[in-house]
Simulated assay, not measured.
Amino acid sequence: MLRRLYDWTMSLASRKSAEVWLGIISFVESSVFLVPADVLFLPMALAKPEKVWRYAIIATITSVLGGIAGWVLGYYAYESVARPILEFYGKADAFDQLRQSVSYETIVLLLVTSGLAHLPPIKIVTILSGVVHVDIWLFIISAIVARGARFFFLAWLLQRYGEPIRHFIEKRLGLIAAGGAVVLILLYAAFHVLAV
């Protein structure tokens, strides 16, 4: 099923309505969808490199709006709407464990790491942010920074290196972003240890 979903998402890149689909996929990825917007963003940017910055703006704005939708689901409708979505993806138990083991500051850090590297998946952190009542303005600013950094970094790589970087991105960007996320987490932990 996941492979068919991925193939369908890739097929959207060649359509005239690709920008609309990029916005839709970016929006729903941040709250309920399984496939990241990158799988549509990459082929679109390679097919029309002159529009790469436009695509980054579309993906960032709609991803942040989708994140707000996830926050609203967590804040106002966790039991009735968000929990069934998490159960559908088999993430409800992991979500509950995460919810019980993190502080407010950690959730803000997770929002940045998930926005950059999908660690944990962005939809889980946006819903969790609403459940624990992360301030909506702090949430929005964090989402803009994290999602914007991801899409604009991808845009820069694709514009600078073109097709050869696509394979690198598809295979290793997750590892690089995860490495960056680990550095952020270690810096956060070091700050807390030194502050005590």
Rank of each mutant, 00 (worst) to 15 (best):
G162K: 10
A77T: 01
L2A: 08
S101Q: 13
V81A: 00
V132L: 03
A13S: 11
H118V: 15
E29P: 07
T113A: 03
L5P: 12
A13D: 02
V131M: 01
S103T: 05
L42N: 01
H192G: 15
F151W: 14
P84S: 02
S17W: 06
L109H: 12
I24C: 06
M10F: 05
V102H: 13
T62F: 15
G179K: 10
R172I: 14
K123G: 06
L128V: 00
I122V: 15
G70V: 01
L5A: 03
L42E: 07
A181N: 08
L34E: 06
A190V: 10
Y75M: 09
V145G: 03
E87Q: 15
L116E: 14
V182I: 12
V193G: 03
I85C: 03
S30L: 02
S80E: 04
P36M: 03
S142N: 15
R150N: 05
V134D: 10
V182C: 10
V28Y: 06
T113E: 06
R166E: 06
V196I: 12
P120E: 01
V32Q: 04
A92K: 04
E79V: 05
R3L: 14
P43I: 13
L184T: 12
W21I: 07
L42S: 06
G90N: 00
L46Q: 07
M10S: 12
W156Y: 11
F153Y: 09
T9Q: 11
V134K: 07
L86W: 09
L86G: 02
I141N: 02
L5W: 01
R166I: 13
H133S: 10
V183H: 15
E105K: 13
I141W: 03
L98D: 04
L154D: 04
E170I: 12
V35N: 08
Y78P: 00
S30Q: 07
G74S: 00
L12K: 08
V32T: 02
H167C: 06
V39D: 05
A155N: 11
G130E: 01
R166L: 14
F27E: 07
E29M: 03
L2F: 14
I144S: 02
V72K: 14
D7V: 05
V64F: 08
F139K: 05
L138M: 08
F41W: 07
A59N: 10
E29I: 00
Y76D: 01
A82F: 07
S26K: 09
A190S: 01
Y78A: 00
